[in-house]
Design a protein around this nucleic acid. Sequence first.
DNA 1: ACAACAATTTGCGCTGGCGCAAAGACACCT
DNA 2: AGGTGTCTTTGCGCCAGCGCAAATTGTTGT
Lengths: 248, 248
Amino acid sequence: MSGGKCGGAGPVSSNTGRNDAEIAGTSRLFSGILPDYHSRLCGAGHVRHFSRGETLHFEGDAVRRVLLLTGGLVKITGRSQGGREVILRLSGVGDALGVVGLFSSGLHYTTAEAFQPGRALIWEDRVFRSLAEQFPALRLNALATLGDDLRELEERFREVATERVAARVALQLLRLRQTIGRPVEAGAASIEVSREELAQMTGTTLFTVSRLLSAWEDRGIVKPLRGGVVICDVQSLGTISQEDPPER
Amino acid sequence: MSGGKCGGAGPVSSNTGRNDAEIAGTSRLFSGILPDYHSRLCGAGHVRHFSRGETLHFEGDAVRRVLLLTGGLVKITGRSQGGREVILRLSGVGDALGVVGLFSSGLHYTTAEAFQPGRALIWEDRVFRSLAEQFPALRLNALATLGDDLRELEERFREVATERVAARVALQLLRLRQTIGRPVEAGAASIEVSREELAQMTGTTLFTVSRLLSAWEDRGIVKPLRGGVVICDVQSLGTISQEDPPER
DNA sequence: ACAACAATTTGCGCTGGCGCAAAGACACCT
DNA sequence: AGGTGTCTTTGCGCCAGCGCAAATTGTTGT
């Protein structure tokens, strides 16, 4: 537990309710809802902390609550009967979990595992349903968020179906840089995602990812680290991502 | 309706409003809305017919209207810069197009092309927005539908990232059988999808699909036709779909 | 019927990327 | 420090599936 490199004992995690309400207030889920109501919304739920590696829900579980992440990072995965796992997306601060399932099948069809320690504002399913009736914006925002998730997955589906591995990994690194990249020096950003996870995001193997990163390191494009990568040359990655659209 | 090659001049397509309203009434989009209001909803839009090959909207277009398909079949595709096209999903009777884009980016990020001739009930964007405010169920239903689309794409993403081609094609055939399969004899169903389209759904090439189908024909599992396939042995396809989950 | 076209099949050769194994390189615990 | 477990790298061999070309077959228009 405890997280890898991140500040476990910072002042942030000491105070539960207060800070989380502020974060929730700026989340997309709350967008369009008057701030006056925010405390009411937050008050209807409770805060829970979770540590790295903890599973928030399993594939197949019934949806019993809705979470709004106010800290940390969660990976959403799917598993094949053969045990192979793919990473469908990452959810970060401000993202909601469970809303979709709540309004359709009632089941989680993915697994959510904490990637970095964090915390979430939690509503029991019935509570959230009732809130959604009082605040239609909640559903509207859920719809918009879901639309974005779908959009990104469509893009990645297209990639895995048509691009070769090098291009896919380059594209994924560029996306990760935008979402979870942490600046380290001028122009460089670090991404804390292992080789295996990168492979699970792009439909390849950790070996191939490792080989690619090694090759790119020689060209000064990235700097592989244990459990992560530093992206040095965004432009080159962009070039690689467009290379060789395999014939036909 | 109607279907594939069948009756273009039948009574169905002669009458516009009436029949479409009935179909719309049973669509998922209208679920939870009292039938009394259906005519009002339908009256706010108009009907349009389209023929095979016609494009309903292009990737990048602004979302100007919402369509509810009351006939025909539409393929939703994405294209890479290299011109390669993938089929993200098929939309059939009762499915709505454009809702997502309307409530998020305002743009279509996919292309919709008619697969079979058909027709749709159309609302101008402003009109639909206003209807959505009067009938919150519209948004709720859109949310649920979108959830299903996401769910299916997640499944296919997992497949293309982890399964080998034979398994992916088998799984896709089984899915198509459920959605657009037309029974031909005892236990057999025909699917009118070309090799190339099958390839674009599963992330492979038309050559490989052709080879697979030929091999399966020898085993009596399918019967390849020009522009389609007849599925004879569902069970064997199920077996194939689970075969060989490549090691590791 | 025949021509022109579109979809499909099939042989052949090649290679991108996988699978495996074994050897590093780190981080953490005691 | 040293031990232990995890993550990563790299060499090697191999094969699933692609790319191409040419033949074949089904469809449509005149």
